[in-house]
Design a protein around this nucleic acid. Structure first.
Lengths: 249, 249
DNA sequence: CGCTAATTTGAGTCCGTTCAAGGGCGGTGG
DNA sequence: CCACCGCCCTTGAACGGACTCAAATTAGCG
């Protein structure tokens, strides 16, 4: 899911910073989709930046947060991707998060992280202290609105995925997942036909609640039906409408 | 799920009002768990009440909102219960909501209701205009914090249910559902041993992504194992720990 | 280039669904 | 008050899809 340009940017930004640095919103590739988007280009941006504690570089396989950690910050993914795991066994995957996503929202109410977040690839995140963020909401109502809409969007997305994955057949679940990834690409204004999966088959099958064998068979089945093309972790969508029809029915 | 006292209160409040009336927070049984809880008893309460447009009485089987409706208000369930359905076929149930729940959160970002809400029994809800609510957030930061925590809690709850229901066996799903209902009773400080289901078997099985026959068999199976007792829509939890062990493993 | 882990493929079994029929409860009308 | 009727829930039997177990192939990496 990580594009070359995003990766290049992440590496450039992180050069010689040793995994921790001050965040620079004006430089960020995602100002236009971030909570701060209504402040972009104005002289108010430095105030927003005061809520950002630091940027963090997380290597593939490393945790951003562990289940049970105290909650005190949210994170915006600047580049890369993460998987959310419940408990300590890596077998229960709750979801995946990509660039521009705001993560940690489900942990606000309990003041503890209910799930862990593990980087699927070398990733760059921007840390938003929750208390500072609440202060910002008072100063900038539009930021607060963006935040609420981000939460609402995630809730809606969870429920949408849930409705299919809960009851659908293996083929429906896999089709839904591919469409979900394509939608993520759309949201980032990237080509949504060619998708490079940042996660392994096991992660996907765990997320979908099916066995890795079933996932493998489903992918070859969809290939034979010319709905998509699979080469290792590269997925090419050949017939998006047919996939949608399959997922929806 | 509706207790006698809640029902009595709802009826008393709604007497002779023809299904629509001004909301009175000071009178409400749920002030202590509502968004307004930090304002309770103060002279600021009337300002909060200004965000409340009206109370609505919804008869069993009637919709509170339909999928596709424009979003402009959230609702607090004062008494009764609702099911959320996706699309127009009643076969896809996203979730259930009970007294004290705040509903409609997933529809904020799209300005349209992505799912319909149908009353499972005669219910009373309190309408919160979203724009007025946003104004209130500016005046009362604590109300805003409560709101954010409510959203976070729902997101967390969705993900928790999702993790089990997606991949678990029929027995695990049913055990999880019973525990979920018990937890709802706990949250409302009610006895969590005796549960009266406001919804039919079909609704439950749709929500859990299993067939009604499987649900029926699972319930008799759990009865035989002495984990619970079922009589029509009345469920008595006999061994909560064993249910939790079954759901978790 | 060899190792290890991940993915794919195959065969058999099991769980849950589907199809079909039998009860039980509540509502309605006589 | 009781009988009837319709709907929902339960129970049973057979089918089918997904899982499990096992092995081969491949990819990733030092």
């Amino acid at each position: 899911m990580q594009t070359d340009s995003e990766l290049k940017r992440a590496v450039r930004i992180s050069e010689g910073e040793g995994g921790r640095q001050a965040g620079g919103c004006s430089d960020c590739a995602h100002v236009q989709s971030c909570l701060s988007r209504s402040l972009a280009g104005t002289n108010l941006m430095p105030i927003f930046e005061s809520a950002i504690d630091a940027d963090h570089i997380i290597d593939a396989g490393e945790p951003l947060v562990r289940a049970g950690d105290n909650f005190d910050a949210l994170y915006v993914i600047k580049s890369g991707s993460f998987k959310a795991i419940v408990g300590e066994n890596p077998a229960n995957i709750l979801g995946f998060y990509f660039a521009t996503h705001l993560v940690g929202l489900e942990s606000i109410s309990k003041r503890k992280h209910s799930s862990g977040l593990v980087a699927l690839e070398r990733s760059l995140v921007c840390e938003l202290n929750y208390q500072k963020l609440l202060d910002l909401f008072r100063r900038f109502p539009t930021v607060k609105v963006h935040f609420i809409e981000a939460m609402s969007g995630q809730l809606n997305e969870s429920l949408t995925l849930f409705s299919v994955i809960r009851a659908g057949t293996v083929l429906q679940r896999v089709a839904t997942f591919v469409l979900y990834l394509a939608a993520q690409h759309d949201r980032r204004k990237l080509a949504s036909v060619d998708i490079v999966l940042p996660m392994g088959r096991t992660d996907i099958s765990n997320f979908l609640g099916i066995s890795p064998e079933s996932l493998s068979r489903a992918l070859t089945s969809l290939s034979k039906k010319r709905l998509l093309q699979v080469f290792n972790r590269r997925v090419t969508v050949l017939n998006r409408d047919a996939l949608a029809a399959l997922a929806g029915g």
